[in-house]
């Protein structure tokens, strides 16, 4: 059990926890947090597994940096969407509102876009 493997296993564990959360949690922000958790796990695995010959490998470091940027972008987008969604529907989960919008929705599509 080298330290690098330890990192990797920790990463896998994080992934597992994150995945569990991602699938189980309903609140969108929590889901987003779970996503970030998985992301961290993956980065950990990437950095941990790639320790060749005891030397730190520069490539995964670079990759992880890029990955983090991507993850931040995604998180930012998600947050914006969730906020707007909450604003419009007052909901924090993806559950379909109970038959509230079945008919109006059908009619309004051709107008496409709700009034601000």
């Amino acid at each position: 059990m080298t330290p690098s493997l330890l990192y990797a296993f920790a990463g896998v564990a994080l992934c597992g926890i994150g995945l569990f959360g991602f699938l189980r949690l309903q609140h969108l922000l929590r889901k987003l947090m779970a996503f970030n958790l998985i992301g961290s796990g993956v980065f950990l695995v990437m950095v941990g597994l790639a320790q060749r010959n005891g030397q730190p490998d520069p490539v995964p470091q670079a990759l992880v940096l890029t990955g983090i940027v991507v993850a931040i972008a995604a998180t930012a987008l998600a947050v914006v969407l969730i906020r707007r969604y909450y604003h419009l529907s007052g909901q924090t989960t993806l559950a379909e509102p109970a038959a509230k919008s079945a008919r109006p929705k059908a009619r309004s599509v051709n107008r496409e876009g709700a009034p601000e």
Binding site: A74, L81, Y85, S89, L94, S101, A114
Partner: peptide, 16 residues
């Protein structure tokens, strides 16, 4: 871009 709650719900689901 659809802008409505339904569009956002679909977008978030897609994003996830």
């Amino acid at each position: 871009l659809g802008g409505q709650a339904d569009a956002l719900r679909a977008a978030i689901r897609y994003l996830m």
